[in-house]
Computed example of a mutant assay.
Amino acid sequence: MPMNVRRVLLLLSVFCMAQVAVAQTRSGSAGSKGQTLLPAGEAPSLGTVDWLRRMHAASRQRTYVGTFVVSSPTGNLSSSRIWHVADGDQLLERIEALSGAPRSTFRRNDHVMTFFPEDKVVKSEKRENLDFFPNLPGAPDSTIGEFYDVRLLGKGRVAGFDADVLQLAPRDGLRFGYRVWSERRSGLVVALQTVDVEGRVVEQSAFSELQFDAPVKTHALAQMMGNTAGYRVEKSELERTTPTAEGWALREPVAGFKPVNCYRRALDGVAKPERTMQWTFSDGLASVSLFVEPYDAQRPAREAVMTMGATSTLARRLSDKGGDWWLTVVGEVPPQTLQAFAQSLVRTR
């Protein structure tokens, strides 16, 4: 998947998707459905973890339709239309790209299908851990407060809705900071700015139009998702594994980042899944993925570090007595964080 497409889909999940095993808000913040709607003029007094859990829960418990825009200081601009339905234990979405190549992405819990009408191709995959914001691990004793401080900056207004404006400031240079607009009554994230260590905005996203409790039918989205007539369906199968089984380890952990999962998979839909390892880490907000595959001398690639918006990519050749490997590290973090992962990765067999 092209990096600009991947980043757009990642940012879509900032607003649209939370993982199934979400930690509920603490007592006092939760109502009969796990989320209290606050009076319009009242801002909750919460700690770092509680603010994030409130925003996290809102994306699971509200149904809405909206249009949002993603932009960066370099002039990149993307927009999409979202239909998001929360129906008991079922989460369904339709995400229609309004810019770039035509594509429609449907999500039903952990099942994701992306339709490319120009190529008449549907890419289907299961994702146990969907990227979203905030990406809380779900444990009540989350350590995210050790690496970020939260401060209520004041009030704002996005797409006609009153919002609490928060600042999530990192305590070191390994992660970005965030300014978040959380809809006052529900807690839903309606705008987000990613900022670097000097406070400069590197990427921002916001709803330009939003309607809560829109009349979207679960069965209608499910029918659209299942209508693959005339398309070639390409399934991406992930096989769970461990870094130890694949012969890899980190010499030293990168502060704050915990391993989330590890799979064998294909990077380009062509290579055999057993040839590529994907090892993913998260600090509770940002995520980093390490892709390792045998180096192919017939397809030489350039070593590089690239940045687009908040996403950085590092590509490097690794060599040891066991052979040559190609490492790709991708994350919504500063480039030095990717360097820390690359320098710590070692072959164990």
Rank of each mutant, 00 (worst) to 15 (best):
A220E: 15
P334D: 07
A315C: 14
V288T: 07
D87F: 00
S344C: 05
P39N: 08
P259V: 03
A286S: 13
G177P: 13
G177C: 04
W326V: 13
T280Q: 14
G309F: 05
F161R: 09
V8L: 15
V260P: 06
P134L: 03
E125S: 08
D172T: 02
G323A: 13
G66Y: 01
F15L: 14
E237I: 06
R171P: 03
S142K: 11
S344Y: 04
F161W: 12
V165S: 01
Q167Y: 05
T337K: 04
T280P: 04
R299P: 01
L91E: 14
L92P: 02
T143E: 14
T63Q: 07
A30M: 08
G88S: 03
G100K: 00
R316P: 00
G160V: 14
V329L: 10
T328C: 07
E234H: 12
A43N: 05
T114G: 02
S344D: 05
T348S: 12
V180P: 06
M308S: 11
T307C: 12
F176C: 07
R94Q: 12
F207C: 08
T242F: 07
L152H: 08
A21W: 06
A101W: 00
E293N: 05
V121T: 11
R151Q: 15
M1Q: 08
E237C: 00
G47T: 08
V14Y: 11
A18I: 02
R107Y: 05
T36W: 08
S59M: 10
M224G: 02
R62C: 15
R179M: 07
T228L: 07
I82G: 01
T307S: 14
T328A: 10
A191N: 11
Q339V: 11
H56R: 12
D162C: 04
E198G: 09
A342F: 02
K155N: 13
T348G: 14
Q193K: 11
G154I: 15
A86Q: 05
V330T: 12
A159W: 10
V65H: 12
L52I: 07
A23L: 14
R264M: 06
Q343P: 00
T114V: 15
D324A: 10
M3N: 10
S80N: 06
L153T: 11
S186D: 15
F133S: 09
G247M: 12
G138I: 14
E303C: 13
A342I: 08
F257E: 00
Q343H: 06
